[in-house]
Nucleic acid binder design. Sequence first.
DNA 1: TTGTACGCGTTATCAA
DNA 2: TTGATAACGCGTACAA
Lengths: 339, 339
Amino acid sequence: MTSYDVALLAGVSQSAVSRCFKPGASVSRDTYARVMKAAESLDYIPNAAARSLITRRSNMVAVLISNVANLYYPEALSELSQQLNRRGKRVLLFTMQQESDFEEVLADVWQYQVDGVIAAASLSAPQVAEFARRRVPVVAFNRKPADQGVSCVVCDQHEGGRMLASRLAAAGHRQFGVIAGPVDSSVGRERLHGAIECLRELGLPEPCIVTGQFDYASGARGLRELVSRLGKAPDALICCNDVMAIGALDCARHELGIDVPGRMSVVGFDAVEPSNWASYRLTTLRQPMQKMALAAADLLSTQIESEGEAPHESRIFLPQFVDGDTARLSRIEADFLVA
Amino acid sequence: MTSYDVALLAGVSQSAVSRCFKPGASVSRDTYARVMKAAESLDYIPNAAARSLITRRSNMVAVLISNVANLYYPEALSELSQQLNRRGKRVLLFTMQQESDFEEVLADVWQYQVDGVIAAASLSAPQVAEFARRRVPVVAFNRKPADQGVSCVVCDQHEGGRMLASRLAAAGHRQFGVIAGPVDSSVGRERLHGAIECLRELGLPEPCIVTGQFDYASGARGLRELVSRLGKAPDALICCNDVMAIGALDCARHELGIDVPGRMSVVGFDAVEPSNWASYRLTTLRQPMQKMALAAADLLSTQIESEGEAPHESRIFLPQFVDGDTARLSRIEADFLVA
DNA sequence: TTGTACGCGTTATCAA
DNA sequence: TTGATAACGCGTACAA
């Protein structure tokens, strides 16, 4: 069914039909009614591919995301999808096993004439340049791109690392253990470095650091390794995401018999849903995902509507402290923060 | 950059360029090399919209899914995306707040000329008819459509309900409680009815049933209501998904002081990742998600390639029992099943 | 307000 | 193997 068929049935020209489906076009009430009736009876719906060919707008936005199964991404994806839909954009989803698959995926993205891209992956400078060359607006989501010429929405992971470390330090913890994220994760690196930096500034002993893969097993494995390296449990354990923190927590309680928070404090990042379950009540940091998705959709929409003339913008959000039951934190500190 | 630009630079006709990007077309080595060199230097990439206009293939598949944030969907979405990508299809994602938003979303789907649809939502008979009329292949994912004229991939939820109920019954549980899913969830309904049917056949007392929303809070709320209705905890608690089971489990242990599995057995459905964490070790059923995604991608690809001439097919998978620590199950039963 | 005519970038057909 | 030409379905000047 094409607009020609509808035009024929309605007894008008094809362009009249086209105008009826364009909001705010100049059509008489009578023509509109006839066209709509014909369209309905023929089940006519405009062809988005043909439209995009001439308008140079596909109304599609590519969302590039790695590791969808990670507990933290679904919320991001869900929010992004809603926000984009609200702005009349559809989500063309590109999932990657690892962030390193990003380059190959990009080649696919160009074909589809998407109006913009939201990339939850690290953007190298050449990649940023390619976006500019192709005039495809891009917003980096939760990744600080190497290049400055890109809009991004991030949660300040570095500051998050500092927040947790400083609160734990203020409460008297001295020997820190850290379970870091995989080396290719910039989010994990920033959290780690924020924590380390803070501890260094405070003159505390160097933390003992092990690497994990952001999964449950990594948390348990990480804690065991820390205990074996230190000869005892650290005073405080900072895990670079919640799932590892939960893995460590379970290991501490069920396997090693370490009292949390009595003997060891445990904190995580993300405030994924399970972190708030009664068995955990994890002390952690929440990324304001709804606001971040909203900001990303706004930034991208602005870029799209301005044809890339809008200045690049970085929206930086602060993580919110979630007061759980897995860390001993001093009352004073809490009062101080409220004031 | 269009194929004309490339043709000009390479000194060939536009159709020659087109052929170079079509696998298996008839082009001389020399022409191919010249075209590719020109294309590379111009950053040329074929325009998928223009291509789909004439080939009537967009290489896009719409995936309709509700409640992406549900712990169970991310795995499904991730697997589906991978399987479809492997077949050269991109995923156009449509998320719905509720399954009832399905109808509106469909209107959007038609515009985009997708090659097919994977619908994780209930399909009414008129909707099935519309797919047929528009000649868009569709595969229902984990939903038995009302109409038979649709391919579907499902896990036998009804049988799952029976499996859990029968094993619990065989182990001597008599008074059952059930926390059901929301009324508009066919998956939840089937699990519930399977369990009820089985208990009825065995001549056991009618189970006490409360309704939940598939979320953590529903599990706790549901258990409290059951206890208040029965005046005590049921012998066995069947929850229509894992997250509610975990909610009930936490409530039983941390709030009501009910020994699980000593005093009450608890089982769930889905085998989401947290169900296997040390704090829970939930007895549950796993849906073979990878196989299901694979089957869905296969079925849809077949439909697409046959232009809808392929017969409709139902692929029904059986849930796999996951032996956790939250249910007392008799040794005999276990041996019996192995044999 | 309406219709004519053209072009968006590609693939497909066909004759050379 | 190659190039000219005609679609694909739509939006949009432009003239009426």
